[in-house]
Amino acid sequence: MEGFIPRRFVVAEFKTTDALLEGTRKMRDKGHAQVDTHTPYPVHGLEEALGIRRVRIPTLVLLAALTGIVVAYSMMWFMNKVDFPINVGNRPAHAPPAFIPITFELMVLLGGTTAFFGLFALLKLPQPYHPVFEWDAFTRSSVDGFFLSVEVPAGEDPSDAANDARIVGAADVQVIVEPER
């Protein structure tokens, strides 16, 4: 394939979560911007070490939940009051208390589905292939290993990042060059 520029990653394994936390902080201090970690479970303090300031999913869910409320209520009002009022026992066609349950349910439905599908949109998943998977040892990242990965910007030498990773306490370091498929 023409014009294929392989992505290059430096992946490093740490023995403990504490070592990973410290290593992550130090790698960022050394000026590596594209640092990520790979752990089998969320580790407390990593978001801070990675310098994540804002989580975007709550805003999305809030907007979706509000949309759910508006859509549900206006739908019922339009259908039962404007378009086709059904008179049963002369009860009001627009009946706010009776509209509460469905308004609530649609708030939950839209909020919940957005929490799920919005998450995958934000994380760009499903993404079955990622260069970090090239390293065999990386299979431990979902079992009992704590990994750090640095994407090396084009034009830079990956051995610098690899050396830095060793200095900050990595037990094992691997340079990965994305193979052409």
């Binding site: 752990t39 969320p42 939940a65 998450l119």
Partner: peptide, 25 residues
């Protein structure tokens, strides 16, 4: 598994999504 790679950036959003789903449920 959809290519889940335990990314620290992913976990952060993931935990929030999980908590929000719990809060809605």
């Amino acid at each position: 598994a959809m290519g889940w790679r335990g990314s620290g950036r992913h976990w952060d959003e993931y935990k929030w999504a999980y908590l929000l789903l719990a809060g809605l449920s």
